[in-house]
Computed example of a mutant assay.
Amino acid sequence: MENKSINLEVTNDEALVLFEMLSRFSNTDVLSIEHQAEQRALWNLTCIFEKVVSEAFDGEYEKSLSAARERLKDED
């Protein structure tokens, strides 16, 4: 399967809030929501993904997800 690129468009506010949240996770290995804006930004991002990730709505979702995870993970 070809690993195509997908372009996502978020606002600067969403990008800033998500950057902070992901940076915090990267530094602590704890994924948590510390401000309601982080939850809103994640909800907004999910809506964006729903528009561009066609696999989410086909009958092979679990198979596609499993294959994507295998391709994306670090090598053992």
Rank of each mutant, 00 (worst) to 15 (best):
M1K: 07
N3V: 12
S5Q: 14
S5V: 11
S5N: 08
S5C: 13
N7P: 12
N7Q: 15
V10Q: 04
V10D: 02
D13Q: 08
D13S: 15
L16E: 08
V17T: 07
V17Y: 05
L18S: 02
L18W: 01
E20M: 03
M21A: 00
M21G: 03
S23A: 06
R24M: 03
R24K: 05
R24Q: 04
F25K: 06
F25I: 00
S26F: 05
S26W: 00
T28G: 00
T28Q: 06
D29S: 12
L31M: 12
E34C: 01
Q36T: 01
Q36P: 05
R40D: 06
A41Q: 03
A41M: 02
A41G: 02
L42A: 06
W43C: 11
W43F: 12
W43S: 12
L45F: 08
T46I: 14
I48W: 01
I48M: 06
E50C: 10
V52F: 07
V53D: 11
S54Y: 02
S54H: 05
S54F: 09
E55L: 09
F57T: 11
D58T: 10
G59A: 09
E60G: 10
E60N: 15
E62H: 11
K63D: 06
K63F: 14
S64P: 02
L65W: 11
A67M: 06
R69V: 05
E70M: 10
K73D: 09
D74W: 09
E75T: 14
D76S: 14
D76I: 08
D76W: 04
